[in-house]
Structure formats: structure tokens, C-alpha cells
Simulated scan of single mutants.
Amino acid sequence: MTAPEKARTPEDLARLWFEHATARDADGLASLYEAAAVLELPGGELAGGRAAIRAYYAGFLASEPALVRGRTRKAVRKGNLALTSTRLEGGTVSAEVARRQPDGAWLWVLDAPDLTTG
């Protein structure tokens, strides 16, 4: 078993998210987040930590959502932080904060996605 690809730029995170989601890979999705990251869930609840994020995505993927790749926007960077965003179908924009890790890879710290399946 090979380790998941690491995001070498903040913009890579959206591509990797889509690849893991279309493969129905909840572990791969969770690997895109720091261990103590926070994911906003539908309804405003929060999933804190990689295990909770993985559990949420496992349920989300089990519903077999229709996934449409959005348009990744250029990240806004300041040092080891980046604001990433993707414009989704219908004009909705997801927003995330990513942090460069000691190995140079990027992981999300905060994520406020739009995960509607319609």
C-alpha cells in the first residue's frame, strides 16, 4: 500500500480532494487535513480532528453523491498559511485555510466546504 500523494502547493489540495472523493476514499480525504483540523458540516456543526473528519466523509461518500469538480482559485498566501477556495457549480465558493507542514507539504487546518449533493 502506497502513501497518499502529498499536496506540494495549496492548490493541490482541491485536486487531491476530488480524486479521493471520486475514488470513495474517506481515508484519503482525511489525510488532507492536519490532525487537529476542523471541518464545518452541513447545518453549521463542526467535526474536530482527523478521525471525526474521516467519519463524516465515510458517511458522505456512502450516500454516493454526484460530484462535480469546481474551479480551484489561486491561493492567497502569507508565509506558511494559505487561503484556498474553489468556485463550485451555481457560484458557491468553498473556503479553507491550509498550512505548510515541516516536510513542505500542505494540509488543511480549517475547512468550510459546500457538500450539497443535488
Rank of each mutant, 00 (worst) to 15 (best):
M1D: 13
M1G: 15
T2C: 07
P4R: 06
E5T: 09
E5L: 07
E5F: 02
K6Y: 01
T9F: 01
T9A: 11
P10R: 03
L13F: 04
R15K: 11
R15L: 12
L16W: 04
W17S: 02
F18N: 07
E19C: 10
H20Y: 13
A21G: 09
A21L: 12
A21T: 09
A21W: 02
A21N: 04
A23Y: 11
D25V: 12
A26N: 03
D27G: 13
L29F: 03
L29I: 11
L29P: 00
L32C: 10
L32P: 00
L32E: 03
Y33W: 12
E34G: 12
A35F: 09
A35N: 12
A35V: 13
V38F: 08
L39G: 00
E40H: 09
L41V: 08
P42Y: 06
P42H: 11
P42T: 08
G43D: 06
G43R: 10
E45D: 15
L46I: 06
L46M: 11
A47Q: 00
A47L: 01
A47T: 02
G49C: 07
R50P: 00
A51D: 15
I53W: 00
I53S: 00
I53Y: 02
I53K: 00
A55L: 09
Y56F: 15
Y57E: 03
A58T: 14
G59E: 03
F60P: 00
F60I: 03
F60K: 00
E64D: 15
P65C: 01
P65D: 05
P65E: 01
A66Y: 07
A66I: 10
R69G: 08
G70C: 07
T72Q: 10
R73A: 11
R73K: 14
A75D: 00
R77F: 04
K78E: 14
K78S: 15
G79Y: 11
N80I: 13
L81F: 15
A82H: 01
L83K: 04
L83C: 10
T84E: 10
L88G: 05
E89K: 14
E89C: 06
G90H: 04
G90Y: 07
G91I: 01
G91V: 01
T92Q: 14
T92M: 11
V93F: 06
S94D: 11
S94E: 12
A95Y: 05
A95F: 11
E96D: 15
E96W: 08
V97Y: 04
V97P: 03
R99W: 07
P102R: 07
P102S: 08
D103V: 06
G104F: 01
G104C: 01
G104D: 02
A105N: 02
W106P: 00
W108V: 11
W108S: 05
W108N: 08
W108H: 11
W108M: 15
V109Y: 08
L110F: 15
D111R: 05
D114Y: 13
D114M: 11
T116D: 12
T116L: 10
T116P: 07
G118D: 14
